[in-house]
Amino acid sequence: MSNHCDHLIDYFNGQLSDEEKRSFEKHLTTCGDCREELRELQELTDDLGFSAEPIEPPSALKQQVLEAAFNKRTPNDVNEEDDNVHNFTTDQESQNSVVVPKNRKKLGWVIPSLAAALLLSLVGNGYAFSQLSTQEEVEPEETAPIESISIDSLAQQLSLQPSEENIPFEARASIVNKDQYQQLIVEANQLTQTEDTQVYQVWLLKEGDPYRAGTFTPAEDGSGMSTFDIDPEMGFDTIAITIEPDETSEVPEGEIVLLEEL
C-alpha cells in the first residue's frame, strides 16, 4: 500500500487537485487493491440516492432545462470546442462516474476520446459514403471477372423493433460473412411512402457514434431493401433506421423508426 492509496476517498468525492487526480489515476492502473476498493465503493453506494424524499421539481423547470440543453451542441455536433477537450477532464463528473473499472479497462479518458471518436466517426461516415457511391457506380461482375469465389455464411439475423408502438414498419437485418468483410442486408415491409426527397437511412452505431449503412426508398408495395458492406472489426453495437430529409445526412437528423441492438 502506498501513499496514493490514501487518496481513494478524496478521489471518489472529487476532492483532489487536477495534478493529484492524474497521479491517482496513474496509480489506479497498477494498484489492484485501489481498483477493487473503488469498485466496491461504487457498488455499495449504487442505490443510496434513492433515499431522497420525493420532491416535485417546479413544472417550469422542464422547459428551462430542455432549452438550455438544446442550446448547447447536440450529441452529434462537432465544432471547435473539441480543441478544448482537455478541460473536460477537470470536470468532476468525468472523473468519478467513468472511472470505476468493472473490467480492467485502460483508465483512458472517455470524455476526450469521445470527442475524438466522434470526429473520426464523421470522417468515417464520409469515407463510408464515398465507398458506397463508388460501389454503386461499378458493377463488380464486369470489372472484376477473376473474382475468387466467396463462401458466404450468415453471421447474424435480427428483427428491428419499432421505436414507437404506433409505427407499423417491419424490418429484418442480416449480416452475412463474406471473404474479407461482412455484408449488411436490410429488408423492410409496410413502410410509409417517403415524401419529396426523403429517404430511409440505415445506421450502424458503435458506442453511440452513428455510421451510415445504407439508404433506400420504399417500393410501391411498401417494401424496401438495402445492402451495405461493413468492416467486421468495427464492432457495431446497434442498428437504427431513420427517415432523413434527403440522402446526404451524415448524422441522423430525422425521426428514428426502427432500432435494435446487435
Binding site: 440543453a69 448547447k72 450529441p75 453511440g208
Partner: peptide, 23 residues
C-alpha cells in the same frame, strides 16, 4: 434546479456518456 439542468446538459452533450459497464 441548477444541478438538474447541468446534469441534463451533460447527458445531452454526451459530456457524460453511459454504457452498461457503468452499472
Amino acid at each position: 434546479e441548477e444541478i438538474v439542468q447541468e446534469v441534463f446538459i451533460k447527458i445531452w452533450t454526451q459530456k457524460s456518456s453511459y454504457d452498461e459497464t457503468k452499472g
